[in-house]
Amino acid sequence: MAYIPGQPLTAVVEKIEIQKLRQGDNLILGFSIGGGIDQDPAQNPFSQDKSDKGIYVTRVSPGGPAEQACLREGDKILQVNGWDMTVVTHDQARKRLTKKSECVVRLLVTRKSLEDAVKHAMYDHPK
């Protein structure tokens, strides 16, 4: 899913709410992210459009809070608690996600299978 800053975006999104797991002093989210506007988008193995500088979920640790919330590897994070994640640096995204003051993060993510589902619905649906 390509996103060009300054251009309108249409995406099928899923809302995911992750309850952070408290482990001692740490809050565990159970996934890893990659990408951001400061990283080379061409190396992103998950994006379809290699110029996409969005934040992608690169790993979801099994049994972790993210997996329980149905976050999947390769998901593109669009928002975190309402904050845009399509034009942020990697560190900004990390900051947003790992805020200690928040034990719940609400994500808006998009993934290819979501778009596919909509597409199918669209073709089943008479125009």
Binding site: F31, I33, G34, I37, D38, Q39, R94, K99, S101
Partner: peptide, 25 residues
Amino acid sequence: PPPIQNSPWTESSLDQPYQKSKKSH
């Protein structure tokens, strides 16, 4: 052309405490 220089694509686990974020807090 991006205003920010591309650094290599990395991933960062969100399970480890984020040092910088502490600072920002």
